[in-house]
Design a protein around this nucleic acid. Structure first.
Length: 851
DNA sequence: GCAAGGTC
């Protein structure tokens, strides 16, 4: 019997496929180790009996990365990244998948690939082939008569569509797959190179720039660009005052507002003159209706829904972030309730069965009244002209009818409802609005009054943009007749101001990104999220994107150096080149080389002119040179270094132009005590949680970056006195280290309970008052009573049970000497009492020095 | 530590 393996892009689709293809007769193979489920059934393949297995991957199995040696930021020249040979590595989510596929493909005759029908899908298809090539019965052949690897292309997860795809198997499109690799390599190299360079350049330069990463990306940066460009429009705007001459008419207890046909008047004097002229009329003033006109206006029904439109609508109407909407829609899709939610098409294919969707909805009690209304008022229209069929997937529509309240939560309900409403709107009749207008002449001035009324609601009945609908539901129209005289009115001036454009809304941004080809419909939400996370923009309560200072500076900097870097045009250009690879017109290698060559040159230019951006940063972010106060002495040049107290505390030597990172907390100067190793002046560090400790800024800075918390020799807070980095035996502060005992039991207990990442403090014997023990992190503190001399025994004499260092005591009054462990020896515990008051310590503070 | 693209 033939052995056939089918692979989908995600587990949920594998399940749907298996059920559809086996008519529900498949069974799930249970395996704890597999990352993805496997379904099995007996069926047929190409006319033969076959044992069919259906499983999946979890998106991409591989991703591109630099070889290990390129990962060191300090040793790799950034420019070299452009010439590095990148390799495909197993992606984090793919580690188990590789083995899983190889195992399931053992001995199969045929492989059928059911990945999503886009370029990424073709690329993943190739990844799957790479994983199974050594397991299949014979070498994979992906084309021609001898092919044993096929591609199934489906556009909806209905049984009908799935079976149709099965009957029309095609081949993997390697050109499309290659185009994805091209994009990946270019994005990786360009993004990483610019990001590393910018980050390193600015990080240690500006004290108040506490962002760790100053990233650049071919998608995220142009996205930021859109937001700042709008800010520019807003700041360039200068408001203007304008006036309307208004006549308020009362008739049968109702008022109507009539506007002068002159429209906006920007000159106040002119506007006043007009009002005065009417008011000062010598005769009794009456107006006369000189014209009445009724017209009808068609409001076209919306186009069928695609992803971008869904993201926009959900942001404006449901106030949901694009990121969240994408997640919810994806879920509705995998539950089989809506069609594939990532599509660019806004035109139903000719085969699309609207009636089937309608009757599916009609089966539910929630939607059946709505469908009834629909059938009564609407012909089953073909959707409006003007949509495009991108050939990927059909527009987003409901697939199954769902009762209200049966979905996971409110968000799901609302997104589903939006999709149903959009579907109904798209196939309903156009709406018709009656437009009634009257003209009146008053002392030579002409005024117009207009009112609208919804005559045929059409699609508006299903659209939830109720604001618009409400505005049309006027109680009743006010009517006038031609030649009618109007006597009861007042004339006034209405003052208004032109308004600046608003910050970009999420919905606007999504639209602009789509228009310029920035990101895919699946990744647009991620990019928006990204620039928020990096603090280049922030999201206002009205879901508008407001650039931050950092975002603005970056944008302006790129504009000064190379405006193309923030321009969407570059991305579009790359996309075009890639499309040529996808269609097989150009080979992948030459496009990679061509594009990287361009960006390499851009990089060199950018690096050469970075001071243009630097100047901008200097105006806003405080430079190290001008901030901070003179503090302790540099061990190299013996001049004062500046202490900069920000999120990340630092000491900066203006003379050596070097930065030393300090832990968080407060610092005091020590009177001239120097580190024996590097001559840097020692400082006292008072952390927010514990006791003061002495540290050497240089030793700390050097050690803190590469020391692991798991190293028992290093616990933050141990200060200069810790063993692993300080090799000086004559340093007087080594005494501190010599008095350390072991980890604080209370901290350890606490860490086990709550935050395992927080390393515990260390208990040590007070060097000043040798009858006290305290922890440098928590407020744990002990005091000896009836003991005269206490010392910490040498390192070699540790407790066999708990590894803490033993203490030497001399008991009063007989001066009996004994050694033991404070944690394990009961006789020790007897002379220890808990020392409640928390002591504070200060190492001879003195006034700050000045230059 | 860094991109963008899948999906979890």
């Amino acid at each position: 019997m033939l052995q056939v393996l089918m692979v989908a892009e995600k587990p949920s689709i594998a399940e749907i496929l298996a059920n559809a293809l086996s008519q529900g007769s498949c069974h799930m193979k249970v395996s704890r180790t597999s990352p993805c489920r496997v379904y099995e059934f007996l069926g047929s393949f190409r006319g033969q009996r076959a044992n069919v297995k259906v499983t999946s991957v979890l998106g991409h199995v591989f991703s591109f990365d630099f070889p290990q040696e390129y990962n060191n930021w300090d040793s790799v020249e950034v420019e070299q990244l452009f010439f590095a040979g990148v390799r495909k590595v197993v992606a984090e989510s793919g580690t188990k998948v590789v083995k899983h596929l190889a195992k399931e493909a053992a001995g199969i005759d045929y492989l059928v690939l059911w990945l999503d029908c886009d370029r990424e899908g073709e690329n993943i298809a190739c990844e799957v082939i790479a994983c199974v090539k050594d397991s299949m019965k014979s070498t994979p052949v992906i084309q021609g008569d001898k092919a044993n690897v096929f591609r199934a292309k489906f556009s909806a997860l209905t049984t009908r569509d799935i079976c149709k795809a099965m009957e029309n198997l095609t081949y993997v499109d390697t050109n499309q797959a290659a185009s994805v690799d091209v994009r990946a390599e270019i994005d990786l190299k360009v993004g990483v190179a610019f990001t590393r360079f910018q980050t390193c350049f600015f990080r240690d330069k500006f004290s108040s720039l506490d962002s760790k990463l100053v990233s650049y990306g071919p998608c995220q940066t142009p996205t930021l660009g859109f937001c700042v460009a709008r800010l520019d429009e807003i700041s360039k705007f200068s408001p203007e005052t304008f006036y309307f001459v208004v006549v308020t008419v009362r008739k049968e207890n109702r008022t109507s507002k009539w506007y002068s046909t002159r429209g906006k008047i920007f000159d106040r004097q002119v506007a006043n003159a007009i009002v005065e002229r009417i008011r000062s009329s010598s005769s009794v003033l009456t107006g006369k209706i000189i014209d009445a006109r009724a017209t009808k206006e068609r409001r076209k029904r919306p186009l069928p829904l695609n992803t971008v439109e869904l993201l926009k609508l959900a942001s404006t109407r449901l106030k949901m972030s694009p990121h969240r909407v994408a997640q919810v829609a994806e879920n509705l899709y995998t539950q089989g309730l809506i069609s594939y939610p990532r599509t660019e098409s806004s035109k139903y294919p000719s085969s699309f069965d609207m009636e089937a969707v309608l009757s599916e909805l009609e089966r539910t009690s929630t939607w059946s009244p709505v469908i009834k209304v629909f059938r009564k008022g609407n012909q089953l229209n073909k959707a409006r002209q003007g949509g495009v069929d991108k050939g990927d997937h059909p527009p987003i529509t409901p697939v199954r009818g769902v009762e209200k309240g049966s979905l996971k939560n409110e968000e799901y309900e609302r997104v589903y409802e939006l999709i149903v409403n959009c579907f109904l709107s798209s196939i309903a009749e156009d709406a018709v609005v009656a437009h009634q207008q009257y003209w009146m002449s008053l002392n030579g001035e002409k005024f117009v009054f207009s009112q609208k009324k919804l005559v045929e609601p059409g699609w508006l009945e299903f659209s939830r943009s109720s604001n618009y609908l409400d505005s049309l539901h006027v109680n009743s129209q006010i009517e006038f007749e031609e030649n009618e005289s109007v006597a009861d009115f007042t004339v006034s001036l209405e003052e208004m101001q032109t308004e600046p454009p608003e910050y970009l809304s999420e919905s606007d941004l999504v639209e602009m990104m789509e228009k310029h080809g920035i990101g895919t419909d699946a990744s647009i939400p991620t990019h928006i999220n990204n620039i928020i996370l990096r603090e280049y923009v922030r999201l206002s309560n009205e879901r508008r994107l407001i650039p931050t200072q950092l975002g603005i500076l970056l944008y302006r900097g790129y504009q000064k150096i190379d405006p193309q870097l923030v321009s969407p045009v570059v991305r579009s250009h790359i996309e075009q080149e890639i499309s040529q690879v996808a269609s097989g017109q150009v080979d992948a290698m030459s496009v990679v080389e061509h594009c990287l060559n361009i960006f390499w040159k851009k990089f060199l230019y950018f690096r050469e002119h970075i001071e243009l951006m630097d100047t901008l940063f200097q105006t806003v972010f405080t430079s190290m040179h001008s901030s901070g106060k003179n503090f302790s002495l540099c061990g190299r040049c013996n001049r004062y270094m500046k202490l900069i107290e920000e999120k990340q505390n630092r000491l900066f030597c203006v003379n050596c132009n070097d930065t030393f990172r300090l832990p968080s907390g407060k610092f005091h100067i020590m009177n001239g005590n120097r580190c024996e190793l590097d001559s840097f002046e020692l400082v006292t560090w008072v952390s927010t949680w514990g006791r003061p400790l002495v540290i050497c800024p240089k030793c700390y800075s050097d050690s803190s970056s590469d020391t692991l918390f798991s190293d028992p020799q290093w616990y933050p807070g141990l200060g200069c006195t810790q063993v692993s980095t300080c090799r000086s035996s004559s340093c007087p502060w080594r005494e501190w280290h010599q008095s350390t005992i072991w980890l604080c039991a209370l901290c350890v207990q606490q860490a086990e309970k709550t935050k395992p990442n927080n390393s515990p403090g260390v208990v040590f014997l007070s060097p000043r008052l040798s009858t006290q023990i305290y922890c440098n992190r928590c407020n744990f503190s002990l005091k000896f009573s009836q003991v005269s001399v206490v010392q910490v025994c040498p390192v070699e004499q540790t407790c066999e049970t708990c590894h803490s260092r033993k203490l030497l005591l001399e008991r009063l009054p007989n001066s009996v000497r004994q050694t033991g462990c404070i944690y394990c020896d009961s006789q020790f515990l007897a002379v220890l009492t808990r020392d409640m008051p928390r002591r504070t310590f200060r190492a001879s503070p003195r006034p700050f020095r000045t230059k």
